[in-house]
C-alpha cells in the first residue's frame, strides 16, 4: 500500500466511520483537540486498523499518536510488507 493509499484509507475512516467533517482532516490536525476524538474513538481506530490493515496496533503506541500525520506514519511503519 502506498503512502497516498494509506492517507486515503485513514481519511475515509475519519469521515465515514467517525463522521468527522472532511474540512478538519488535515495532516497537522490534533486528533483530540481539533477532531474531537475521544478515548472510545481511539479504540475504534485500533479495531479498524486490526480488522482492515492486518496488524494489531499496541495500546502503548496509541499514546504517541497525536496528529492525523502520526496516524499515517504509524500505519506506514507497521504495515506488514
Amino acid at each position: 500500500m502506498t503512502r497516498e493509499e494509506i492517507e486515503q484509507r485513514v481519511n475515509r475512516f475519519f469521515i465515514e466511520t467517525l463522521e468527522f467533517e472532511e474540512s478538519v482532516i488535515m495532516p497537522d490536525a490534533y486528533l483530540k483537540e481539533d477532531l474531537g476524538m475521544t478515548s472510545v474513538d481511539v479504540v475504534e481506530m485500533r479495531l479498524h486498523i486490526y480488522k482492515h490493515l492486518g496488524f494489531q496496533p499496541q495500546k502503548k503506541d496509541m499514546m504517541n499518536i497525536r496528529t492525523v500525520r502520526d496516524v499515517y506514519d504509524y500505519i506506514e511503519q507497521h504495515l506488514p510488507k
Binding site: 472510545v40 479504540v43 485500533r46 494489531q56
Partner: peptide, 13 residues
C-alpha cells in the same frame, strides 16, 4: 468473542 477469541475485536461500544 466466540468467533474471534479476542476482546479487541468487540469494539468500544
Amino acid at each position: 468473542m466466540r468467533n474471534e477469541k479476542d476482546s479487541l475485536m468487540v469494539g468500544p461500544s
